[in-house]
Nucleic acid binder design. Structure first.
Lengths: 265, 265
DNA sequence: CAGTGGTCTAGACCACACT
DNA sequence: GTGTGGTCTAGACCACTGC
């Protein structure tokens, strides 16, 4: 593919120049951070797609006119943020949600006995999928304007026959134009993998706000629990590159056979 | 303090020797990982106490007979695990729970509006503190034998007059001999800071299992909520060095004015 | 000013994967 | 063997802190 000449600018010289700018805020940024931003832009622009191999450290070092060690430090940080995966002897790959390794990367719900693999794949049932104008709270979470088009999706996930997760998903109408219940139902694999392959939207991080709530009539019926049963309410905002929110998800989890697992350090 | 002569062994040579051992499992370990383990042992042995300055990278490099870069990489990982804190121009310090910066490092409960600093310090009330023989489940979590001595502590945390957290804490009787309700009540600052300064036990990581439950009569009274109110049940196991469990904590959180915040990546 | 951690480079060698 | 990422070294210089 064509590379813009500006990509070949001497970054090291630019860094020195920036640091030489005497001001109240020198805005000094290490070379490897600048390289990291450049790689990030290429990822974002789709120069290398999820699952693909990115150029070797030596190639990138030549392209950016810096040493291999500097590129290495930039990639180290990208790997720490799960944006790329390194494989010794093979190369560095763009991270993807469509891997066997981490089936549900953002799902923290675990069965009480046994691990996540012991219960087989989740049974998915799509309850509803419709287009609507965003209410104020949904719009705010997705950085849209009230009334903008959004997709709303409701589904139930069951494990070994027991409905366990009920979730509503809101997506901005623009990037996800053409998403239908059929395409979702036909797709094998995580929803985020479909987002990548079909809509070019890659989720890189998320925030969850968790509460305990009582099941209302509608939720109780879908999850097959008594009305008033305590459920875990998990509100997730998922972001793509540049901290751009691209999904709001409100889930209700049954925690009689499963629990939400979190590691602190 | 006295340094065992073995500390001055040529680590680099040892690494080469280890890698030269031809076997089914060469058990190759990078030099910097070995250095990391050595530093970890010094931390664990209390050679440098929480809050203290550890030797400079150059000093450690000389002590272990490796280059500064190798020590740097070892310390980088320790810093990433929050075991030490680096400060440019000053040095590297042993991490501690007794810092202004991160008041409650393991507490993920946030007020719905405003940040954690906007509501002032928590009001703490100790309900109970007693010695008992560990039931089977508690013993298992703390890697003790059933019937071993443990301390049980119950307390309520209130924010702005509203009781919000009710928690039971179990601690192994041996390491925490001498802990009383009075010492806890008198102490200003996080409980984990007291554990460090008074008992030399430093918590480095924790796991939490979260569920939604209904308030029973006793919990409802202490948290001033109706019986049956949905509450967040947070079971935390906290570990000191070497993955040794040193605390089991079962908390009930009110989530009408607060929420549990989690970041996923 | 000296001492600390932080960045950058260049080169050598090692472990791993593919061919 | 060739090419990849991973380790280790040595030296230079930069940014920050406190004397």
């Amino acid at each position: 593919m064509a590379i813009a000449p500006s990509s070949f600018t001497d970054i090291a010289a630019a860094a020195s120049a920036a640091s030489a700018l005497a001001g109240a805020t020198p805005a000094f940024s290490p070379l490897y951070q600048q390289i990291k931003v450049l790689i990030l832009k290429s990822l974002q622009a789709g120069e290398w797609k999820p699952g693909e191999l990115i150029p070797s450290e030596m190639d990138l070092a030549a392209r950016f006119r810096v040493s291999q060690g500097t590129v290495r430090k930039a990639i180290d940080e990208l790997a720490a943020e799960n944006l790329v995966m390194r494989h010794q002897g093979k190369g560095t790959f763009v991270a993807t949600h469509a891997e066997q390794q981490v089936q549900y990367r953002f799902l923290r719900l675990m069965p009480d006995n046994g691990d996540i693999n012991s219960e087989g794949p989740a049974e998915r049932q799509i309850i509803d999928c419709k287009r609507l104008r965003a209410p104020a709270d949904i719009a705010r979470s997705l950085a849209l304007r009230t009334g903008d088009a959004v997709l709303q999706l409701r589904r139930v996930l069951a494990f070994q026959g027991t409905p366990t997760i009920l979730e509503d998903v809101w997506l901005p109408g623009g990037p996800f134009k053409g998403l239908t219940a059929e395409r979702l139902a036909d797709y094998r694999g995580p929803m985020y993998a479909l987002f990548e392959t079909e809509f070019g939207v890659r989720m890189v991080r998320a925030e969850e706000n968790i509460r305990a709530v009582a099941a209302d009539a509608a939720s109780a019926e879908l999850l097959k629990v008594p009305v008033g049963e305590p459920l875990l309410s998990v509100e997730r905002t998922a972001y793509t590159y540049n901290d751009l929110p691209m999904e709001l998800r409100r889930g209700l989890y049954r925690t009689d056979t499963h629990h939400y697992k979190n590691e602190l350090s």
